[in-house]
Design a protein around this nucleic acid. Structure first.
Lengths: 183, 183
DNA sequence: CTGCACTATATAAATATTGACATAGATGGC
DNA sequence: GCCATCTATGTCAATATTTATATAGTGCAG
């Protein structure tokens, strides 16, 4: 949120940025965002201003303070935040033998493949749109666009690997199944 | 935890399994494990038995009940748990321009590369060890080993992609830096 | 003119998770 | 004898997060 609030934005705006651009690696609900904005303002990391909205109730926009900017920078200087990932579908995969039915396991992998390939398609769409609108894509992007593009690059690579892994896994489960039936 | 407790294990054992085998995609602290074991026993998902330990204080081992097994199966049948990933270093990457110093950003990426390549080495070691001890690796594994091996396969693929992405990103940041200095 | 979708903010209750702390036996090295 | 390390269990306080709920204005389609 400190990263997003270089320019003033409302909680609602922040939610939209999470959905649009950070979707692949971070999510947050409005019920988490609003109290946190207040807390961060209390701590002096943000300042806020109320203003009329074109549509709907009064907007309150927040912007980071000098202290907020410093806190963001020290977070970045602390080094990469690693080792906190929690990937539900891999935990499930680990225990898939408990289904006692290879067909159910294949179905699981096919569902996952569908999810990942939809995700890949949406990342590819985002890339196409970006390429169409920004003549500098991807090698002459502005400073503000360059690092976000790195995360898109990683998203594309990772999701492609995920789809390939699903295909490989389905083939391997089928192969075991066939061997079992021959034996 | 329901997946692990097909055979009786203590909270301490469960923690070790998280560290050894699920490290790449799930982590849990003892302070989360112990209360949860008690809660799950209260809910009738687990049964427990106290017994002497070879070293240290009394061990309490838990095993899943029929109800626990059913709950595990319905979790697996609900389909893949997706969309909950939260990857700290990508959130940082997105906002790296705030450092206002390409050298610091390169340092960030190099630190990340070091972390990921250490992780890759440990996964490769795990695979080598497995291959050395199990003549069926990877195509004739037992049911209990096959699905865990799928998660190792994914871990290897994903971390390799991560290392490549770091290398590519470092090169791209350097390239921008060089162009800026020429201009 | 009604209902739906979108903008917009917010709280309450429940749940999940971490980090710090407390306890204690066994074993081996210095 | 002492200290570190590993086994082993647990609590507490603080924090983080989700799900459900409430409110309300605007604009558009039917």
């Amino acid at each position: 949120m400190l990263g997003m609030l270089r320019e003033p934005h409302s909680g609602y705006d922040i939610k939209k940025t999470f959905e649009k651009s950070l979707r692949s690696f971070w999510r947050a609900e409005l019920s988490q965002i609003y109290p946190l904005l207040q807390k961060m303002e209390d701590e002096g990391l943000l300042t806020s201003k109320a203003g009329a909205s074109e549509k709907g109730p009064t907007r309150r926009v927040y912007k980071r303070s000098a202290k907020g900017r410093e806190q963001l920078q020290s977070w970045l200087l602390e080094g990469p935040v690693v080792g906190t990932e929690r990937i539900g579908y891999l935990a499930q995969t680990y225990f898939l033998a408990n289904l006692k039915d290879d067909d159910k396991a294949i179905e699981f992998m096919q569902d996952l493949r569908t999810y990942l390939s939809d995700w890949l398609a949406s990342l590819e769409d985002a890339e196409d749109e970006w390429r169409a609108n920004d003549p500098g894509y991807p090698d002459k992007l502005s400073d503000e666009s360059f690092y976000p593009q790195l995360t898109l690059d990683m998203g594309l690579a990772k999701v492609r690997v995920g789809v390939e892994w699903c295909d490989r896994s389905i083939a391997r489960i089928r192969d075991r199944q066939a061997k079992r039936n021959n034996a």
